[in-house]
Design a protein around this nucleic acid. Sequence first.
DNA 1: ATAACATGTCTATATGTCTCGACATATGGA
DNA 2: TCCATATGTCGAGACATATAGACATGTTAT
Lengths: 119, 119
Amino acid sequence: MDAKKSQAAFAALAQPTRLKAFRKLVAAHPNGLPAGEIAQFCKVPHNTMSTHLAALMRGGLIAVARQGRSMNYRANLDGFRGLIDFMLRDCCNGRPEICAPVVDEFNAACCAPARKVAS
Amino acid sequence: MDAKKSQAAFAALAQPTRLKAFRKLVAAHPNGLPAGEIAQFCKVPHNTMSTHLAALMRGGLIAVARQGRSMNYRANLDGFRGLIDFMLRDCCNGRPEICAPVVDEFNAACCAPARKVAS
DNA sequence: ATAACATGTCTATATGTCTCGACATATGGA
DNA sequence: TCCATATGTCGAGACATATAGACATGTTAT
C-alpha cells in the first residue's frame, strides 16, 4: 500500500454511502452480499450503487465474484489492513514511541478478547 | 470519532498535498511547523496550503497555535488514533476474530520495538 | 505610526464527484 | 430463442473541490 493507492482507499471511505456499504460487507464477512442487496440496504438505485462499489474496488477495499446472475461483493480485509498498516507506518517509521500508544489502545480496548491470539 | 467525523478525516487524507503535509507534520512531531514552511515543502502557494490545512483541521488531524507571526501546525495524533480506532471498531464490533490478525500485524511488524510498552 | 512579514479570506475558474435515467450486457429458465 | 433478472456503462445536470490572484488581518520591528 503506497501513498497513491491509499489515496484511492481514503477517497472510497470519504463518502457516506460507500462507508455504510463497506461496514455492511465487513459485518457480513466472510460471506459477501449481492450488489442488489447492498443497493437496497443503502437505499440508492442499483446504478448509483454500482458506481460506489467500483470506487471501493479501486481502493482495494472490496472484492467481487459472479454467482449466477448476481455479483457477490465481499470485504477485502487484507486491503483494509494494508490501509491501516500504511497509516501506522507513517507515524512508526523510525519512531515507534509515537506508534506505541496507538497499538496499546487497540490491545486494551478494541481487541481485548483476541489478545490471546496476539500473544 | 463517529461516522460523520471520520468522513471529514478520510476526505482530508484523500488528497496528495494534504497527505504529504500530514506525513511531514507527523515526522516533525511533537514539534510543529509554520504554515509557510509546509507550503514550501508541498510546493504550493501559501493560500492554497491554507485551504488544505483547514481541511486537515476539519478532519481533526492537526492542531494549530500562533507563534509570533507564524501559525504553528502540529499533527494531532489523538485525532489520528481516533480515526484508526474507528476503522478497527468497524470490524471488531462483536467479531474480534476478524480484528485480531490486523492487530497481530502491528505488533509483529510495525511496532515491534515498542511491544514492551504494550505488555 | 509605518513598513515588512506571515497567514487567512474572498472570489473566480477549472476540474472532479454524485446522482440517476436510459441503455447495454450477461446469466438462467421456459 | 425469447424473456425476466441482475448488474454495469454512458451521459447530463447539480453540486463540491482545487487552485491561485487579489485583498484583508494580525504581528513584530524600527
